[in-house]
Design a protein around this nucleic acid. Structure first.
Lengths: 116, 116
DNA sequence: CATTAATATTGATGACCGTCAATATCGAGG
DNA sequence: CCTCGATATTGACGGTCATCAATATTAATG
């Protein structure tokens, strides 16, 4: 329970940058900062990079604990943060959990920067 | 002293995404995470937004302390972080300090996301 | 059902961050 | 030179974060 997702499917004012952009209100700023909080860690950037580089489009935790010099619980923790930020999608099949990039999430995040 | 600037003028492998992108090394990840750390705060996003919205292209601190509900030292602190991250440029004229967006900085940051 | 393997959760700890009050710096006028 | 106004720096404090060890959960398997 926690899909506020920061990168909501453009429910509100769909990504059109309503022209003037009146300097970002406090709430909106707080909401938008959440994605960047998720990106503000080297290991999480590496996780995203690894998942993105995977040909199949998905990686399981066991593939992610090796490259990063971190324990399994820490990796799980970072993955949760990325999921909560709306950047990664989690699918459990059997004992394994597969993580994949949420389509368009990185692009939408880049869009936040473009329309600051 | 501290212009490592995270958003270095593309000295290394100029923004071309060398094809394979071998999954982001530890150092590179750390360096890239610095910009996002700077963006991971609501008030800093608002500062960027205000500076960007300014027609003249620049704002002085006195114009920035009002909109954000923060004291002057705190605003100065945030501005310093944005400057160190290579996002803002600082120019002192007389008693006033004028801050402006570093040209292309936001676009380069968006590029980091695109080529993760 | 017991066991094992994969992943998630909890609790604790040390480091870092945002904020403020107080003070320092630095330039402009008088 | 002395004061004043604008900005920066310092030091302190509370909150958040990244990490780990230990434990819980859940699913496959014997």
């Amino acid at each position: 329970m926690n899909s506020l997702s920061t990168l909501a499917p453009a429910t509100d004012e769909a990504g059109c940058a309503p022209a003037g952009t009146p300097a970002l209100g406090a709430e909106e700023a707080k909401r938008k900062s959440l994605v960047f909080k998720a990106l503000a860690d080297p290991n999480r950037l590496r996780l995203l990079s690894i998942v993105k580089a995977e040909a199949s489009g998905e990686s399981c935790v066991c593939d992610l604990t090796g490259p990063l010099d971190l324990g399994q619980p820490t990796v799980s923790h970072h993955l949760k943060i990325l999921v909560d930020a709306g950047l990664l999608h989690r699918e459990k099949r059997g004992t394994w959990a597969y993580y994949s990039l949420v389509p368009g999430a990185l692009e939408r995040t880049a869009g936040i920067l473009a329309s600051l």
